[in-house]
């Protein structure tokens, strides 16, 4: 099932992939497993969307990669190191190399934009410096630069609870970028945003993925958005990987396989998108 995507102008990297997930299983208390033996791998700088009905296990999958949730069995390896075997200290080091973006932005709303963005540096700091919130001049300079790249310079010292949803998500992206990550995990980044803000966020993500060679794993609700921006799409249904391929390989039959009964409206949506 592993198809390798090739894009003109992008060198195919040799050697091991950036992230390898094999036979990942997560079982909450009782009942059906949330993840049921998922395997895939991701290369440097690749933009991968994960689609599937709600409750399919997309969120759990993302969180098992950086061990925000402990998997029941299976293996995740990042840059060749097995994530499951890391001790606390090395787990923090791993997390500092992987950014994360959330549906509800997860900012400290009472703090300013720049303070929230600087939180991206905490993983690289000693306990004391982290607790005291002491940042170097260089870190502050980087933060303002990233904020400027996201078009938020005017809001540098504004409290985050005064920002719009789209602006908050851009703060979330800036925080992830300041980690200088190899990969960013995005959990439904546009599910709470209006269409304009959604397009802006997706374009920013695409741009950083290409310019900085950051791999992205994006959980998405909207099939058309996934098709438009991704290099590759993973389809998840009931904890199993049922599709792994390029956007153009995603036929209506495949979609109905991923979404089951929900699929009809989604195929219609997809048709419209291709028509336009």
């Amino acid at each position: 099932m592993t198809q390798v995507s090739q894009f003109p102008g992008r060198p195919l990297l040799s050697g091991r992939p950036l992230l390898e997930v094999s036979q990942l299983v997560k079982r909450y208390d009782a009942g059906k497993p949330a993840l049921d033996g998922i395997s895939f791998s991701i290369r440097k700088g690749e933009f991968v969307s994960v689609i599937g009905p709600s409750g399919a296990g997309k969120s759990t999958l993302l969180r098992c990669i950086n061990r925000m949730i402990e998997a029941t069995s299976g293996e995740v390896s990042f840059e060749g190191a097995s994530v499951g075997l890391l001790d606390r200290k090395n787990l923090k080091r791993l997390r500092s190399k992987i950014g994360m973006i959330f549906q509800h932005y997860n900012l400290v709303e009472r703090l300013t934009v720049i303070e929230n963005v600087l939180h991206g540096r905490l993983g690289a700091k000693s306990t004391l410096a982290g607790a005291a919130g002491h940042y170097s001049r260089e870190e502050k300079r980087q933060a303002t630069e990233v904020i400027a790249m996201l078009g938020l310079s005017d809001h540098l010292y504004q409290r985050c609870d005064r920002l719009s949803g789209g602006q908050k998500q851009r703060v979330g992206i800036a925080r992830a970028l300041l980690q200088d990550p190899r990969m960013i995990l995005c959990d439904e980044p546009i599910a709470s945003l209006d269409p304009n803000a959604s397009r802006n966020i997706m374009e920013q993500l695409k741009r950083f993925s290409q310019e900085m060679d950051i791999a992205l794993i994006v959980n998405l609700h909207q099939v058309n958005v996934a098709c438009k921006y991704s290099d590759r799409i993973l389809g998840v249904n009931a904890g199993r990987l049922v599709f792994d391929g390029r956007p153009e390989e995603l036929t209506p039959e495949k979609i109905s396989q991923i979404y089951g009964a929900e699929s009809r409206s989604l195929t219609a949506e997809l048709g419209e998108q291709y028509a336009s």
Binding site: R141, E145, Y157, R159
Partner: peptide, 14 residues
């Protein structure tokens, strides 16, 4: 982006 090398001053928040 040279203008941004200088971090603008932080206004005091009440």
């Amino acid at each position: 982006m040279t203008a941004l090398q200088q971090i603008p001053g932080r206004p005091l928040r009440k």
